[in-house]
Nucleic acid binder design. Structure first.
Lengths: 356, 356
DNA sequence: GGCTGTTATGTTTACGTAAACATTCGGTGG
DNA sequence: CCACCGAATGTTTACGTAAACATAACAGCC
């Protein structure tokens, strides 16, 4: 009864640190079986007597048993987790892709661990990956518009599988991308089909692969139609930059059709044109890219290229899990098709100016 | 030399499954030390001779050693990971909060695991939590506008710590919320201060705590100023619903000022008013809530209540880690202040109609 | 009635790490 | 000169799980 008596106080079973969870051994003792039987019940394996199973399940519930995933992962050698590296969650595309990845992964019994990289410098990327190396992750999806995945920048842990979303990867990794070229072609053709002589382009920032692709495809589509390309106007994805670009475009009397590389910039563009008295779509047609949920509520509702982010996310997860399961890296690019959504920001070219 | 000879083939060190990583034991053997010494080096503990440390580091690099986080977690008893439960990433607020959580957590050496719950039913929530129970997570941040956290719905694993963001929790958990009431009060006072007789309210969906708070605060602010509250108009956070509501509000000749519960709905509202020939801000003043990045590019640029999502995320992580570290749950609510951002969608009430 | 097979369960071991506890060794003070 | 110290390193053990390998009981069969 003395305090110096070395025997542990009654109550707490010995060895259980703090108020930790029950382990298999605890459940086994409570149910009067071996821990292996508990394991079998826990994993739904066959070969356990119904009555025994019931006793074990009762004991589990009683003790609030939850399997320890660290021990599981250690034993199994994998983590059932996919890491997602992203520079920012401020663009719609990244977020929607992330959400789709998380959903698909959950569907496959995988969790998603987020790894935000604040500043897109090469060192930061390396840091992210080396941290990921220590993280409990079987595969990594990289969501980056900016191309920072060149050889010098990365030395991945050998058995972590990689999928790159919405970017290029120099054929070193599996890539899932939206069909930027196809979507752009549709947009340009739509405008040309409405009688516009040519299509101006409000591009995304330099260094962004998505922006680059859209710009290239815009040039190609104009060339294919035998039209000249007006000078490039560049923004940085933000509505604000679209506004500034719009102020300049409003000064161009022969600008009757603009393809904006995303919907946010199109929003700013619409405002600038409105302010300068250029009516959309009567005087100028505007088309965007992404089809963000708000696009239908712009003034006027925006014609735009719909991206299927959910599908991109799904395919990222599929590729990642294929790689994890068969143990070897994939290469090559998967393209997810887009769809043109025609709303009210595009119309036939104004008479007297449109067709040359 | 026969194939039936039981000795393992040369080459692969025995026991190393597949092409797994090097373990401490491998490094130890390569460096000619014990694995405990490798552990000390790996964790930067003192009491290792400089020369020995160098040898171990070389061996690590040589073998590409990365600590196995599952084993670490098992040994240490924690995961260095925070789980985030969210219904959707389609609202700006959730995403911004999530991003801030991820950033703050990374700063503290914690990873963030995402747990999307597709449909906001109580069963889904329970499912999420029970899965979380098995996940490698020390704490959980719940980002939900909808109040589904009532007693019946959840039986959390006892030692998983919980923080609720942007919602209510019946004082059962720690809560970090934006100062909805304060922001709303500022918005209403701003409009009244411009001479508007009263302020209409375009509310968020029923069942959303954030929406409820803003509605309550709107009523309170009007009452405090001795003004009557016009009938409530309800939306569902989307721009589309704001548009539909706007069409109705445009019919109300005495409606000169509207407080929309978020910026997306304000966007739709602006479009509806524009379509119906009600000028903003000359005829009707509109104010939003959130200050999404595009708000400054609306037509006209939107006056709105700025939410500091980054701060919300930061405090969520702080609370979560406090709970993890001191081992006991927190209660109580933390409010993060808002800031009114005046742009061009609000102006003095039109003469002859505004002041009674 | 011994052999084989099946079903239900228990025992041993290893996963990679790190705390706790030895051990070794050169030096230091009584 | 020996007991003792601290610095550097090694050995043992446990974390919770599950694969691999026993064991036990009992049925069917020639």
């Amino acid at each position: 009864m003395t305090a110096t008596d070395g025997t542990p106080a009654r109550g707490r079973p010995r060895g259980r640190r703090r108020t930790q969870n029950a382990s298999m051994a605890d459940v086994a003792k409570a149910a009067g079986v071996s821990s292996q039987t508990v394991s079998r019940v826990s994993n739904g394996f066959p070969g356990v007597n119904e009555e025994t199973r019931g006793r074990v399940l009762d004991a589990m519930k009683e003790l609030g048993y939850r399997p320890n995933s660290a021990a599981r992962a250690l034993k199994r050698g994998d983590f059932r987790t996919i890491g997602v590296i992203t520079f920012t969650l401020s663009t719609t595309g990244n977020v929607r892709t992330l959400e789709a990845i998380a959903t698909s992964a959950a569907h496959e019994g995988y969790a998603v661990t987020l790894l935000p990289v604040a500043v897109p410098t090469q060192d930061e990327v390396r840091g992210a990956f080396s941290r990921l190396g220590e993280l409990a992750v079987d595969a990594v999806v990289v969501i980056m518009e900016v191309h920072l995945l060149d050889a010098a920048s990365l030395t991945l842990p050998p058995h972590v599988k990689v999928v790159v979303a919405d970017s290029d990867a120099g054929d070193r990794y599996a890539v899932v991308d939206t069909d930027q070229a196809g979507g752009t072609r549709d947009a340009v053709r739509h405008l040309l089909g409405l009688g516009h002589r040519t299509v101006w382009h409000l591009a995304g920032p330099e260094g962004s692969y998505a922006a680059q692709r859209r710009t290239d495809a815009w040039r190609a589509a104009l060339k294919e139609a035998g039209r000249g390309a007006p000078p490039l106007v560049r923004g940085d994805w933000t509505a604000e930059s679209g506004y500034r670009a719009g102020l300049r475009l409003a000064e161009q009397p022969d600008c009757t059709a603009v393809f904006a590389a995303n919907d946010q910039m199109a929003l700013g563009l619409l405002r600038a044109l409105h302010e300068r008295g250029r009516r959309v779509p009567q005087d100028v047609s505007v088309i965007g890219f992404d089809d963000i949920p708000e696009a239908g509520s712009f003034q006027p509702p925006l014609t735009t290229v719909h991206q299927d982010f959910a599908e991109v996310g799904r395919r990222c997860v599929q590729s990642a899990l294929r790689q994890v399961r068969c143990g070897e890296a994939e290469r090559g690019t998967t393209l997810v098709p887009t769809r043109l959504v025609v709303r009210e920001s595009t119309a036939r070219a104004p008479r007297g100016r449109g067709v040359s």
